[in-house]
Design a protein around this nucleic acid. Structure first.
Lengths: 201, 201
DNA sequence: TAAATAATGAACGATATGTTGTTTATTTAT
DNA sequence: ATAAATAAACAACATATCGTTCATTATTTA
């Protein structure tokens, strides 16, 4: 009687999700029709509407479900920005990378290729930004930054996402610990010096 | 007789572009119908098809025209990555920022807000990446980087775009020279130290 | 086994698309 | 200034997708 106990509901729903992720990678979200999903999931087009309002509804639910997992993964990571603690930033990234490594195909569909879902990236950026922002909200009084905090956050989030996406796109070429370790070093010391590139004024 | 001399063509085309940019910001690209554009531009729906194949065609042309200007702006900027020269990176960013400041409304529509055009950002990232990549193509032999060059490029481009978008989003709060100067310093020395934030191991 | 409910299948109106003609208005060239 | 060229307007069309309704069939739960 409960919606989640009826095997038909579960099976249909699984088929829809699977078909949807496949089609996103094949033809991109916008090009997908409800009939496409129904055909691939081998259900009647009408059945789709018994489970989701429309295509954006399906996308939102998929996106939010994945992001909810990221939120849960990092919620207990401690974070401190003043003083900046390398280990905490490293922990956040490593936690996220490890979560991604257990659900690679989903994140591949969401974040890689010309059919990637920019809504997902944008929402994920917000989550990272909020998390990093926590580190500044500790009651230590305002100090005098020579750069706008907003600019700093933007910079940090952008590079963070850049590295994460690079990692997924290249099929996780390095262990999660190594990527997060290198990233935090780059952030702290400047990536050119970290990489061993000479700098001339 | 030439398509570009007939005032009717020019006027109609201008109306279409203007309507298109407005509608992108108002309701987002996907929600726009050809009829919307025709109504706003005060032309017959049919007339649209005399100028563009379809909606994606119009978008592509708008995007590529803007990007062409960016390409032209930075094509003559010298760039060197080994040794890394702060001034060259600074020059590239400053050139781009100044170009943007002369066409703010277009870049606002393309890069800011929930209706931004991710295709544009993605193509712009590629242009920046190619440009930065030039700096490595000088014949100096392979050196041993401690980080993958691809990772480094991804990091650089992501942070570059992050700063640019932040700048546009906040209505160009600082002069272009200052943003590009600070950015290159962050890149070279690490943003935390640049910002005056203490780092603890 | 009976009741509940999920899924099917057919049909519908509404909306947007892209195309094809024809007519009107404007521009260019003679 | 006028005639030829062409852009734009207007109407009509077939097609596709959407979201909904309703009756019927199949499956699951109680």
């Amino acid at each position: 009687m409960n919606k989640k106990t009826d095997l038909r509901v579960l099976r249909t729903n699984q088929s829809i999700r699977k078909a949807f992720y496949e089609l996103i990678q094949e033809k991109g979200y916008e090009a997908i029709t409800i009939q496409d999903i129904a055909d691939r999931a081998m259900i009647n087009r009408n059945t789709f509407y018994l489970h989701y309002q429309d295509k954006p509804d399906l996308l939102d639910i998929c996106v939010d479900e994945l992001l909810e997992e990221i939120k849960n993964a990092i919620v207990q990571c401690p974070i401190s920005m003043r003083p900046f603690s390398i280990s905490t930033l490293e922990t956040v990234m490593q936690t996220i990378l490890e979560h991604i490594s257990h659900n690679t195909s989903y994140y591949q569909a969401m974040l890689v290729g010309e059919n990637k879902i920019y809504l997902f990236q944008s929402k994920m950026e917000k989550i990272i930004k909020d998390k990093l922002n926590e580190g500044w909200n500790s009651p230590q009084g305002n100090s005098t930054l020579t750069i706008s905090k907003e600019l700093l956050l933007e910079y940090l989030v952008s590079s963070f996402m850049g590295v994460v996406i690079w990692w997924i796109k290249n099929d996780l070429p390095l262990p999660a610990e190594e990527v997060s370790s290198q990233f935090s070093k780059i952030v702290a010391y400047g990536h050119l010096k970290t990489a061993g590139i000479a700098v001339k004024e």
